[in-house]
Amino acid sequence: MAREELVVRALVEMADSLVGDFDVVELLTGLASRCVELLGISAAGVMVATVKGDVRLVASSSEAMRVLELFELQAEEGPCLDAYRSGEPVDHLILNAGSDPWPRFSVAALEAGFQSVSALPLRLRDITIGALNLFSVGVAPMSESNAVVARALADLAAISIIQHRVADEHQRTNEQLSYALNSRIIIEQAKGIIAERAGVDLSEAFDRLRGYARDHNRRLTEVAFAAVDGTLDPDAWSGARAPRGPRA
């Protein structure tokens, strides 16, 4: 298959998996492996910023300890952290312990067998959320056409991470909406139960429900749920009030 076809196929495959439910770590691990296959490099990793402002590894093309450690080191220094903080790419750099900006990182990378490194920020419009790190055992920089593909893969990683966060947020909001509506339904059911038990109207039933919850320091929905469940104290609907004053 022609190289361009391979690139297009990889991009389409990944874009396709963005629809609906997807596992973001699986997708990014696939993306890291594609980087190695398509860009003529040796290892790739996707790092994402934490709330503390450092970067953590979320996916790597390699599970080798020596490679994983290189990412771990970058919580403090390294091309990923620089690309994330500046929002700009860290261009291809031949590692040379002692004369580059990340002494500890360089030593470890050279020991792991890598000669050169670059990093691309993960960015969607104005937001930078992490960086894509590329390692090579050779010293040659990426070709111009590979650099374009790398940029496309970094963009895709950024979109998938943001998409995933948005989906999580939507899920939470929907759960909150369901919770609020379910609570309301249970309260209305409890009003009906108390109204029927006590032979009062709905607004009196609600007053009794609320009064009981207040007197017993319990949440309204909790008391309503007990009424629906049949486990509520008959005092709750008889209108008997707890004695005033300090409670045990």
Binding site: Q176, I185, Q189, K191, G192, A195, E196, R197, L202
Partner: peptide
């Protein structure tokens, strides 16, 4: 929306059939 609540804009024109739930509570006792 405030925590635990339904957004006012979702509520103001809605029909959540509350009377049906009141009635279900009453009928369950009946």
């Amino acid at each position: 929306a405030p925590l635990g609540g339904v957004a006012a804009a979702l509520d103001s024109d809605a029909d959540f059939h509350l009377v049906a739930h009141n009635a279900a509570g009453m009928v369950s006792i009946q």
